[in-house]
Write a protein that binds this DNA or RNA. Sequence first.
DNA 1: CTGAAAGCGCTTACAG
DNA 2: CTGAAAGCGCTTACAG
Lengths: 336, 336
Amino acid sequence: MTSGSPRPVTLSDVAAVAGVSLSTASKALNGSTRISATTRARIEDAARRLDFRPNALAQSFASGRSHTVGVLAHRATSTFSHPVLIGAVLRLGARERAALVYDGDRLDRNRVGESVRQLSARRIDGVLIVGDGHEQRTRSLTADFHAPVVYAYTATDDPDDLCFLPDNLDAGVLATRHLVGLGRTRIAHITAMYESIAVRRRETGFQQVLASSGLTQVGPTRHGSWTEEWGARAIGDLLAEHPDVEAIFCGNDHIAFGVLGVLERRGIRVPDDIALVGVDNWEGVILDQGTRRLTSIDLHLSEIGGRSVDALLDGVMLTGPQYQAPSVVVGATTGC
Amino acid sequence: MTSGSPRPVTLSDVAAVAGVSLSTASKALNGSTRISATTRARIEDAARRLDFRPNALAQSFASGRSHTVGVLAHRATSTFSHPVLIGAVLRLGARERAALVYDGDRLDRNRVGESVRQLSARRIDGVLIVGDGHEQRTRSLTADFHAPVVYAYTATDDPDDLCFLPDNLDAGVLATRHLVGLGRTRIAHITAMYESIAVRRRETGFQQVLASSGLTQVGPTRHGSWTEEWGARAIGDLLAEHPDVEAIFCGNDHIAFGVLGVLERRGIRVPDDIALVGVDNWEGVILDQGTRRLTSIDLHLSEIGGRSVDALLDGVMLTGPQYQAPSVVVGATTGC
DNA sequence: CTGAAAGCGCTTACAG
DNA sequence: CTGAAAGCGCTTACAG
């Protein structure tokens, strides 16, 4: 668009045009208060006329601040960490920070040192560690870096680390409240393996709401895996033992789809006979268009990435786990 | 780990220890050939002993190369562009480049200028534009930047632009060859809207293989949407008209799952009676573990991101569209 | 092959 | 409030 590219406009050019010294120009443009209003106006005007763009490389070098953040994507191959990672890099971009993203293998015990050196050579402003959910704690890496460290989508073994996490407890609470709010009283829970922290927290939320509503869970919680197959199998058993069940909180959307398929095949009406709620807002993730079938809890994973970045850049003095509030997304599987 | 942080080791320190000048030390460490082997060895040794890490900020400033790439995620909210974007930023990290990632709204006609200015202030090494697939062409932005521009996962209106794209034609070819290779001769095609470039290219690949195998397509191609619902509806019609169909190439995995559900419900054995192939390797994306049901074509989207980065950094002199070879991932829906 | 010197374009004490 | 000057830590012609 611009014709050719002659010498870029420097701060010295601005100073010369404004008739002030280089240092005065610098101060005026960097918002120092110890500048007269008229001088500042003159300098800002000159900068505008010349379309001055400070050379970010020179600024970084002189100030020692790189405007770059290191992002360690620990076990970030999982689909669920993708929104977190993307939420993080987009927020970084929106705040004019570059991301130096390293893949998980850099976090092996023996290779962390290499990442640390690379990042400190870059004079990184901070480090964001992106995990793969709440399944497992990450070893704290905070002490390895000289820059501030924030964790997204994983907890660590150090209770002082600032970690942004989905609120799985509240996910269980919201899902169950939604079903109770529809007037259902005979509610069951089908979910994944008991070993998962996320599973247990969702279940706890479920049981808290039942208790405070004076309801009793229909049958024991059925633990299996995060798959459609498991959902299909579990609903068969559940119906055999408790044909009067009115609603099911499913640990995630895959399980819910497995349940839904079986119910449809057996001619059981959803939500008229049995209402369903899942977790993940999977349809929201994969569908741009189309009608939503499942009611689900959205954990707002990309917002977890975004908030982690904000905390890192704003130097907030929080410590410990921070939970992202989930929300209900209503589909056709829960009725009035 | 390291105790405190005194003054970092500089190149001058290395030069002093090695007993050479600053400029000689610089040349030795930057692989200039006009250096005696013994001097170089001495300098490299000193650098190693001192654990010298060149200050990347100073290097960038002095050389004018930022080691940062601008990434414009154009309409990159779609699930399918996520692997491309993540493939790109991970490759950038692996090659020690930072990514300054801007969200789509920066690409509005009126706002491109702002991104251009921000990126040129950063003395960006190149620009990567990530689109949302092959559905629609992007307006070429190459002329807006002074740095090299590469496009990933989108084509542009300028035939000279270097664009990395999934090979949808070959996806159709591989899928169909796979079915033909299993001995199926009566093969149908259920896919999404005709308006989609991806749909038409997959269909063309399908028909090329049928033709070269001397086969005739079973019924016309059924165009609908990318959803499970459409797959379920289309298979009903197909079976009504052509109960002797032996295999179906589904335009994507969602459609294939819709088809699969109906077949199972009707007691039609898959793959014994009807074999299925989809596209996207969706199960590979969402499952870490578990048995694979669907046979699918993997378009290798994250590799598209990675290759785009390589092309950008290596300054390859390619122009025009570059197609990423897909591959077949076998599941239970196609038998021997 | 090696070194002295200028320079990259800012920021930031420090003096006035 | 304003300015002269040093300095950030490299790279890169240019001389020797």
